[in-house]
């Protein structure tokens, strides 16, 4: 059983929800109130993820490497912390604390087509890794601007916006020339990869940080394509799209 420690308005959590939906994986959500309660910085959550960041994914269907490291049983009978309930004790499964790591894990373990993360193709997984790092750059810029505007974070929003525009210019150029080569996704190939999902959320939410995508027509078309991936789901601030023109 998979549990996602999730916050509805988090783009990083949305990346995981997207892949879980597209791979049709059943999971349960455990909501962590990021704002205003800041539960991701609470003691009970830090016990799960000392970094105090979302998302966290726990996969209990994963067999631990060393059963001897399991906590003794009586641990479970302790009074649960705050919102944490005993049966959700994450220790029994694999706990992953970073959206990119979770994407890699889910795609490698559960994607039978091995298209989302083609681990046998060194060039492709290296390119995917580049884009996962690029996505972190978007998180550090576009997402920060959104946190400043929507969640009252004390950051230099103008600097974040300027950095996001730099990244968007690079991405738009990449996608424009990809289209020129009849490519649809960030990493060349017939099918989308986790690179697309890692970059999508904070791009599509950029206007919530006052970052217009008007100057990036190739990015806008790519977001349409991501929205048409089977299993695509929305989140607040992300709008649905109509069907593709069937040929």
């Amino acid at each position: 059983m998979i549990t996602l420690y999730d916050y509805e308005l988090s783009g990083n959590c949305y990346k995981i929800r997207l892949l879980l939906s597209m791979l049709e994986i059943e999971y349960s959500k455990h909501t962590v109130e990021f704002y205003p309660a800041a539960d991701h910085k609470s003691e009970w959550f830090k016990a799960i993820n000392p970094l105090g960041t979302l998302p966290v994914l726990v996969d209990r269907s994963h067999e631990p490497q060393n059963a001897g490291q399991r906590r003794p049983l009586q641990q479970k009978t302790e009074k649960p912390h705050n919102e944490q309930t005993a049966d959700l004790n994450p220790i029994d499964g694999l706990t992953l604390k970073d959206s990119a790591a979770i994407l890699v894990y889910l795609a490698t373990r559960y994607d039978k087509t091995a298209s989302w993360y083609p681990s046998s193709d060194p060039a492709k997984i290296a390119q995917i890794t580049e884009w996962l790092a690029f996505a972190d750059g978007i998180t550090a810029s576009a997402s920060q601007a959104r946190l400043a505007e929507g969640f009252f974070y004390n950051v230099d929003a103008d600097a974040c916006r300027a950095r996001a525009h730099q990244l968007f210019r690079i991405l738009d150029e990449h996608l424009w020339f990809a289209e020129h080569r009849k490519q649809r996704w960030l990493v060349a190939g017939d099918l989308p990869t986790i690179a697309d999902l890692a970059c999508f959320p904070y791009i599509i939410l950029s206007e919530e940080g006052s970052i217009s995508r008007q100057d990036y027509p190739a990015i806008r078309r790519w977001t349409d394509r991501v929205k048409r991936i089977p299993g695509f789901i929305v989140m607040p601030g992300v709008f649905p799209i109509g069907p593709e023109l069937s040929s």
Binding site: E179, R213, Q214, P217, R220, R221, D224, P243, E244, L245
Partner: peptide, 16 residues
């Protein structure tokens, strides 16, 4: 205001 190729099927281009 746009390239012809900007107007892909079922897309709305944001122009100014």
């Amino acid at each position: 205001i746009a390239s012809s190729t900007d107007l892909t099927p079922r897309h709305v281009f944001h122009g100014q």
